[in-house]
Every structure is written in C-alpha cells, then in structure tokens.
Amino acid sequence: MESSALRIGSYSLLSRLIMGTGGITDLSALEKALVQSGTTLTTVAMRRYTPETKTSVFSMLERLGIDVLPNTAGCYTVKDTVLTAELAREALETDLIKVEVIADERTLLPDVIETLEATEQLADRGFTPLVYTSDDPAVALRLEQAGAAAVMPLGAPIGTGLGILNPHNIELICSRAAVPVVLDAGIGAASQAALAIELGCSAVLVASAVTRAQDPTAMAEAMRLAVEAGLHSARAGRIPKREHALASSPAAGIINPLEDLT
C-alpha cells in the first residue's frame, strides 16, 4: 500500500515519521539514524551562533535532502516565540515552524494560553504553524481555529518514553480535527508509534526515542516500520471491540459437544 503525501498547509510531507535531532552528540550516528528512518522532515532548534555549533546540522540535513522544521524550543512567551520563528524563517528560508511554548523547565509541558496566542500571531504573519500542545481535545480545536496547520498533542511529557498516556483523548482529537494531527513527544518504543497512527494520527514525531536508544539506527528503522504498520492497520479496518469471546472455529462438529457431558 502506498502511503500518499500528507498536506500540512501547502507543504507536502512524504514520510509520516518526523524526526528530531537533539539528544545525540555523535553527528555521524545521527546521520545514519536519520537515513534509516526514511524521514523527510526533521526538527532543529535556533540558538546563538558559536564557532563550535557552526551550521553543521543544517548543512547535514541539506546534504541529505531532508527539509528542516525549526522549533521554538526554550520559549516561554508569545514575544520570544514570534521572534524565534521570524529568525528561523530568515535563517532557514522556510515558513514551517514547530510552535513550542513551554510552561516550566521541570515538566516541559506546553503553556496552552501562550501557545494559542503565538499560533494566531504566527498564522497572521504567514507561517505554517505545527503546534505542540497538550492532549486536550478542546485546546486542539481552538488551535486549529487560531490557524494551526497541524496540531501536535503530546503522548506523554517530552523525553519520558511513557508512550500515549491518554489514547482516548488522542483518538478524540483525531476524530474531530480538520487539520493533520501529529503525535509529538512521549514515544519510547516502536509499538507506541504504531498505536498513534492507529488512533488516527497522520504522522509521528520522534526524537529521544531514537537518539537516546542504545542503537539509534536500529530504533530508527523500527520506528519507520511501525509507522508503516500503523498506516496499514488503520486503513485495514480493525474489528470492533467486544465484551466476550467470539470463536473463530466452527461450533458444529465438535467431537465432544458440551451437552453430552452433562
């Protein structure tokens, strides 16, 4: 089954697996993992230029033909978020922006009030905002109305690997959204990426799960296969859940029917 390109605003996303680049120091290991993941869109953060950082990640992604998705990680306010997004657009020549406004350092949970306002302002300024948010279905709808090109609810807090803590909410967000839903944050294992797609998500963003795995390249491949499996599974039409068992073998012709035993 061909997985057709996903439209996010006017952008065509070819692979449903968006990757992050944080959490790994060895750039060649990161490169191997990115290639193995098959990703076509990968996040970067915006920071002050230093002789050490140079532009190595950007050059690498450009060389690999992977589009960049700048994020606003580290922003706490609308003002910082908008400035960071404007700098990213100028530096990287893309309208795509992953809006990430966090409430505090300890939980890294999104501040949805600031996020909503930032989304509205960025949409007005011509950005294509992909918006990191909580798994609250009401907030997801508000973000969509504010101009989010995609909503990105968390499965669990960033870097925890706890998976999808509230699958019901994720399913509800997906069932009502008119824009793509991308599961962002919390994934630790490939099965959780497959689940996200089965619940109705259009794509999955994975960072730490790959970059901090013992074997990032192997985990990248697992994630690619999981997203593909999830797409097949979601399109195949799963059986309804039942209260009690439903035999798949025929009841007729059993050699010792139950009534003979009484």
């Binding site: 944080g22 990161l30 996040t43 915006m46 230029y49 532009t55 950007f58 530096a91």
Partner: peptide
C-alpha cells in the same frame, strides 16, 4: 546584535 543558527534539537 543576536546572530543565530540552527542547532540540534527537538
């Protein structure tokens, strides 16, 4: 002046 670039993250 702030001079920024892309770094690993997210």
């Amino acid at each position: 002046l702030e001079i920024v670039t892309a770094v690993q993250g997210g």
